[in-house]
Simulated scan of single mutants.
Amino acid sequence: MRIELVQGDITTRAVDAIVNAANSSLLGGGGVDGAIHRAAGPELLEACRELRRTELPDGLPVGAAVATSGFRLSARWVIHTVGPNRHAGQTDPALLASCFRESLELAESLGARSVAFPAVSAGVYGWDARQVAETAFDAVSGFAASRPDSGVELVEFVLFSPGMVEAFRRVREG
């Protein structure tokens, strides 16, 4: 599995699935979540409302993942995951790792060969960029080692700011 760092807008990536750093309501928000909802169009919000009405009446739990169509995105799927919010006392790195692992498992089950991740829980959820990067690389590497025959061939970390890219690069280079 190839792992690449990209500075840019996750909504423009030509991958099979993009991961949305969603909130548990799945009904849109700020940051990456808002950008994905805007780019995918109103159909994404309707799909998320349907998930809430049927499968997830209490919302998506922290660390879990669920998929919808990508609608107006070039990505076929959006995989929504809810990262832990450090400001709300959610400080367990296992919850953060679960976001990456569950998203990759779901991507694999969908048949996705390429997946783009944002820096889940960095930013407004208060996690340090370095800790997010360490957790993300560990989770993706662990997934790749446990599933050598996985159809997921490419994982991109698509990071909006130069500072976030640098934090991921430093962790990657050790």
Rank of each mutant, 00 (worst) to 15 (best):
L110Y: 02
A119C: 13
G111W: 03
A112V: 05
G123S: 09
F157H: 03
A136I: 03
P148D: 04
R170Q: 14
T54Q: 13
G126P: 08
F117M: 11
E173F: 11
V62N: 08
Q7G: 09
V165F: 05
T135L: 03
A75P: 02
E55I: 12
A107F: 01
C48R: 11
S141W: 09
E105L: 12
G174M: 03
E105V: 00
G30S: 10
R130F: 10
F137M: 07
P61Y: 11
F117C: 09
A75F: 10
V158T: 15
G31E: 04
V6R: 14
R101Q: 14
V165S: 10
P93M: 04
D149L: 06
D128C: 05
R113I: 01
D9G: 00
E46A: 15
Q131H: 13
C48G: 12
W127V: 04
V120F: 03
P61N: 07
L110S: 03
R172S: 11
E156M: 04
A139S: 15
V62D: 10
V6W: 06
A21C: 01
V66A: 03
V158M: 06
L159F: 09
I10H: 02
A17M: 08
L56C: 07
S141D: 15
S114W: 00
M164H: 13
W127M: 00
A75E: 07
V66Q: 06
E43S: 15
T135E: 08
L44M: 07
A65P: 04
F143D: 00
F100N: 12
A17K: 09
D149H: 07
V140C: 01
A88P: 01
P93Y: 07
G142R: 05
R130H: 13
A14N: 14
S150Y: 00
V15L: 08
R113Y: 01
D149C: 00
V82F: 10
